[in-house]
Design a binder for these strands. Structure first.
Lengths: 330, 330
DNA sequence: CTTATATAAGAAATCGATTTCATATATAGT
DNA sequence: ACTATATATGAAATCGATTTCTTATATAAG
């Protein structure tokens, strides 16, 4: 690997001048600049990022934490983040937190040790008080999941509205017995809390009391959906509609409901969340709440890069629109 | 951020001794070792990776290239790679090649500039002659996609067998008019070539001539599947069965076939590839070829890390089993 | 009792860039 | 013509680790 000294030697100039050319500093004559550029080309020279980082320069790398990449919502989010980052000249380091606070913490260390310039968190496992100290080492921003009084940029959706319009839609279709199956066990803040509020608000407006037997929390996967549906099938009094926290839960429920001979939506209406590709592939096609994943990812990268360029930037918060996509399961 | 000098100052020892403790070198007294460890703890000291890299140490980072992360096959692969890497103390940098040779090349630069210790390629966009020179800067290995005479470790599946057993299964079900819809335009090597051979072998054994009208190459997504199905519907003479290169193509075809009122498998048998979660969610459930993604990812990481630990290791090639999962579309 | 070897620790060089400081020349302003 | 400023370049310090040389002591061998 050629180094900056090799370029200096070949051109007969000093390392300083080479560095100036690399970093587009002023006060380099056109003549020398061309000479240096040519020599760099010739040698196939690339600046060593480790050396640049050591001097406190940027790593042009951003870190992204997702709960699990196999969840399509997050793989789509990572897709847009990676693409947007690449366009801005950044690499992406990925970690799956897997609901593991330890692993999340290990990842935040990358910021401390300057392996990443900044971090996008799409889920939060640790207490904010644990995460906050890392802000001293670089920007952290929240995308998707959020915490109300964290003084960091947030790109999020109006989750309360999402749940509200979904449940409202079920009520409009004449349902009174509505089950609720979503993630977040004791959600005291953020996405799940807001969804809970949206759910409650819609019911309250229609004067429907919450039946706690039909509340299923901490549910995430297809398997979870199947299990819950089986629990519901075993009940004396069943709900007639289910609002779920993801298309995957909904899909699991549909598979199992069909096994039990239930007709959807006649015997059981189901509504998903996310509008993943599977929503269109299920039969019947799934009514769901669409989240603008692409916009979220792009915006998150744009904000993070802005913060990296200008550290004095003030904290922004963006709330993106969310909408109901009515298909055939309601 | 405390540095090694801070630890040295606090303990009253030299940087050299601190470094020895960090790297578990011999000839450090137990007494001093304990002292250093305590001081590191106290200061919350972590070695600066940029500095270590500059000295040519490992980056404990591996790079992974996938075509696109939103393809579930690859998001599952990345999942296992990331998990396995984390267990071995490695970070993962991800890039989507998006069928873009330029982007793949940009990613390989990370090896040259020591931002990653090694790279796992799950797809190949450039000519091997373009990729090979990068081997001088660190190990590259192939996982999933492969090139016959590249002298690098390969973890792959028996793709020929995969296509063969799939097509054979269709023939056993009595089909003679079999369409073939998969990726890879002019596959001269690797996965797609092998699949082509498997397809041809199965037909030949049953004395069935290939109908080129029913060959669709360079197809990947759900949308591609839909388009091809529409092309097939417009034909005078249609195939009665389709072998596809991914569950997604198959899913797209099923959606469109149903729109046209075709019954699956009676009017049209369809077989997928991958055994993604959607295979079970489609109606009817999709017959497909299962690929052991978890094993592939784990094995790839294990081999790469082995190579990093012991650079004299000889090149290995692993072929993992592949199997037919018969469901309801055939 | 001397010499060889194992153990223990530090000083200084090194990795490859950027940055600060110093210096030299050219141009502009008065 | 003389100072002030803009332009152009280089030498050396710096970032935070590891590594190579040294040196000093302790132990073992002859």
């Amino acid at each position: 690997m050629p180094t900056i000294s090799d370029v200096a030697k070949l051109t007969g100039l000093s390392k300083t001048t080479i560095s100036r050319v690399i970093n587009n500093h002023q006060y380099v004559s056109e003549e020398k600049r061309a000479l240096v550029l040519k020599a760099m080309q010739e040698l196939g020279y690339t600046p060593n990022p480790a050396a640049r980082r050591l001097r406190g320069q940027s790593t042009t790398t951003i870190g992204v934490i997702v709960p699990r990449i196999v969840n399509p919502f997050f793989s789509y989010l990572v897709n847009t983040i990676e693409t947007a980052a690449y366009e801005k000249g950044y690499q992406v380091i990925i970690s799956q937190s897997n609901e593991d606070a330890e692993k999340e913490l290990a990842f935040l260390q990358l910021l401390k040790t300057k392996q990443v310039d900044g971090i996008i968190m799409t889920a939060i496992e640790n207490e904010w008080s644990v995460i906050e100290p890392f802000l001293a080492y670089g920007p952290i921003m929240l995308c998707n999941e959020y915490i109300t009084n964290a003084n960091v940029p947030i790109v999020r959706l109006n989750q309360q509205k999402g749940a509200y319009i979904g449940v409202k839609h079920l009520i409009d279709r004449g349902h009174h017995k509505i089950a609720y199956c979503t993630g977040g066990l004791f959600a005291e803040d953020g996405k799940d809390k807001d969804r809970n509020h949206g759910f409650q608000k819609a019911l309250k407006e229609a004067d429907i009391a919450v039946n706690t037997k039909w509340i299923f929390l901490n549910q995430y996967s297809i398997e979870d959906g199947k299990k819950v549906m089986n629990q519901i099938m075993a009940m004396d009094e069943r709900p007639t509609a289910i609002f779920t926290g993801s298309d995957e839960i909904a899909a699991g429920m549909m598979i199992e409901a069909k096994k039990h001979g239930l007709k959807i939506p006649e015997d059981m209406a189901i509504i998903g969340f996310d509008d993943q590709p599977i929503a269109e592939m299920l039969e019947p096609q799934l009514t769901t709440i669409r989240q603008p994943v692409e916009k979220m990812g792009e915006l998150a990268v744009a904000i993070l890069v802005d913060m990296l360029d200008d550290t004095s930037l003030k904290v922004q918060e963006h709330e993106l629109p969310i909408e109901l996509v009515i298909r055939k399961t309601t």
